[in-house]
Each structure stands twice: as structure tokens, then as C-alpha cells.
Design a protein around this nucleic acid. Structure first.
Lengths: 150, 150
DNA sequence: CTATGTGCAAAGTCTTTGCTCCATC
DNA sequence: GATGGAGCAAAGACTTTGCACATAG
């Protein structure tokens, strides 16, 4: 059986390969931030990352974390937990519905999916306490943006 | 056939009823903000709401919009478009997965749902351009928070 | 009339940016 | 060595809050 530490080592290797192949310098800061991310399953905030990494790398600054995270996202090494943009948006449509989000222009459209609404969530989440609401977010490029792309 | 304006009038009526039943004062600001919300299907930001409402109510201030929106959400009149909290969170898990979000403590857990992943989105969204990713968010109360509730 | 709600201004978060020095390649 | 990255500090975006006045009930 494989140890968890082997898995971390593997991911760190592939991190270095990605950096080399894309011409990204491998700095202490980047290495530690990436290591922290793969060891932390809790979807940390930037502040969380900063506080964790600071334990090993006391000189790191918060803006380096922001920049590094931005770089990682740009290079496809991590993803933001779904979230439209910085401003909260509101919805007066209280009936059960779902969202189409254009990753280019940020437009959000509602759609309905009654078949999905009737589905039971998978058994694997029975460990979770109570369920209020299940909601689908579909990311993509809306029709007007995909016309512009040509 | 019903006109759209009838529908708006109906919703405004029920808005007033809700306010009265819950002891919320019906002010110009609240009325105009609510009217704007039901006439705008675009999931506006607070700033959008402010700019729209200002056309009719030139003295309104941005912080009133924030407060009013907060009140509406608290009284169940509108909802925030799904979004965890103010800080962006990151995810190094790039495999296809979904999120359980505890609305009480904010914890986010990953889960897998291969049956859903194989499903085609509903036909109604064929108007949309391209689809990248479909993602389920389940809101609820996690097991440790629901134990505390008792 | 009374208490809730508004406007104003100021402060609090979270995030981004310009510049200089440092470390990786 | 050259150049991309880190650290610092300041500014920018979004949101919240304390206080005095206005207004709905």
C-alpha cells in the first residue's frame, strides 16, 4: 500500500515538471504554497494559506500568496472554489433553479432542470448532516461571447 | 393572457404583505429596490441595484442598498447567488468533484457523483454557447454543526 | 409620538499594484 | 549576469458600522 507521503512527493514532482515546462521559476514560496495546498483538503482562503506557510517560511508576505495563487490558477495548477467575481449578486427567483455562468463576460442565466431536482444525492454523502438545497452551476461561454471569439 | 406588468404588481403586493406580516416598514427605498430586483433578471450586484434605483430615487445611498439587501435576505425575500463567503477559496483537487457547503460553519467538503457527471444537461440550455464544467453545490448543515444545534 | 430606517462619513476586509532588491536559471 | 519573482507599502474594490436626523405606522 502506498503511503500518503509518497502521494505528496509525486504531486510535488509533477509540480516541478509543470513549472519547468512552462518556464516558471521554482521558488521556496511557490513550493511551500503548493505543498500546503495539496496537504490541506479544506479549501483554504488566501489568509489560511498565508498563515500556514508562514510557519515554515516566516518572511513570506500576503501579497506573494495572492500573486502565487493567481499564477497557479492561470497555469491550471489549482482552481478557485466556484465563485462568480468579487461582488455578491442577488437573485429574487426563489423557485428551484440553477445557474449558467459565462466565464468570459460573467453573465448569469437561470435554467430549470426538474429531472435533476428529483434526484437523490449520492449515498456517499450520508455522513453529512442535513441537506437544504442542491444547486447546479454550469460554467461555459455564453452564445454572444462565443460568437465574438471567432 | 396576463401582462408582465400584472405579474410585477402581484409580486409588489405580496412584498407589501410580507413586510406587514413581519413588521417591516414599507419605505420608498425598500419598495424601489424590490421592484428593481423583480424586474431585473440579471442577478445584479449591489452597485447595479444602486445605480438603477438612483434613477428613480436620487437621494438613495449605497449603504442603504447594502442594508436593505441584507434585510431582504434575512426575511427570505431574495437570495444571494451561491457564494461561500467574502474570501475566495482554493481547491487543488482538479478531478471532477462537487461541494458540500455547511451554511453554518462554512466548511466545504468534496464529494463525487459519477452518475451525475455522465448526465447531459437539459435541452433547454442548448441556446447557451459552450459548456465547460457542470458542478453541484449542496448546501446544508454538516454533521458536527447539527450535533451542536440540539 | 415613537422607534425603525436612512444618509453620511469613516472604518474594516479582501485584493491588487508599483517599485526596488533578491534569487533562480 | 539577466530577468522573473518577492517584499514592502500604498491604494483600490467591496462591505459594514456608529451616529444624528427623517419618516412610517
Amino acid at each position: 500500500m502506498k503511503k500518503a507521503s509518497d502521494h505528496v512527493a509525486e504531486l510535488m514532482d509533477s509540480f516541478e515538471k509543470v513549472c519547468k515546462s512552462k518556464g516558471l521559476r521554482i521558488t521556496h514560496q511557490r513550493t511551500e504554497i503548493f505543498r500546503m495546498l495539496i496537504q490541506n483538503p479544506n479549501h483554504p482562503t488566501t489568509e489560511d494559506i498565508f498563515n500556514q506557510v508562514r510557519k515554515h517560511l516566516s518572511t513570506i508576505s500576503l501579497d506573494t500568496v495572492y500573486r502565487t495563487i493567481g499564477t497557479f490558477e492561470e497555469y491550471g495548477l489549482i482552481r478557485k472554489v466556484h465563485h462568480i467575481d468579487n461582488a455578491t449578486r442577488f437573485d429574487h427567483n426563489l423557485s428551484i433553479h440553477h445557474h449558467l455562468v459565462c466565464t468570459q463576460c460573467g453573465k448569469i442565466e437561470d435554467f430549470y432542470w426538474p429531472y435533476f431536482d428529483r434526484m437523490k444525492p449520492p449515498k456517499s454523502i450520508s455522513r453529512w448532516g442535513e441537506i437544504d438545497l442542491k444547486h447546479v452551476v454550469i460554467d461555459g461561454i455564453c452564445s454572444s461571447c462565443s460568437k465574438k471569439d471567432i
